[in-house]
Amino acid sequence: MKEGFSPRYDLNRVTGVITRIGHSAEGESIKDRILVIPTTKGGVAGGWAFNDLLHKGIAPKALVFGKLNPVMVQGAVLAKLPITEGWTRNALEDIRTGQRIRVDPAARTITVF
């Protein structure tokens, strides 16, 4: 997505579809996707929300942030989702929606297939 993301402000947490009017990823489902997100908005909702999404079977596979806040880490640790922060190149230019990618948080690499 091209802008900040909050599971509370932007996402319908029943369907897993981004519903905020005018969001760059409006209408996209996050289920089983790797979310590439430049920044965070808000919010403490992410602390519980990723675990809830996992429970509902609509969680993303991994979170790739440019800049994040601690809530995203707290939420990802609870839901056991891989999470990374920091880009050496602009991931929004290198990765396009729908591409297959592999994220290796330990090696700090993203491979585009």
């Binding site: 403490v44 602390g47 929300a49 675990n51 806040n69 601690p70 707290q74 609870l78």
Partner: peptide, 8 residues
């Protein structure tokens, strides 16, 4: 810090 979800 923000202490979201289980964190707080």
């Amino acid at each position: 810090n923000y202490e979201g979800g289980f964190s707080s």
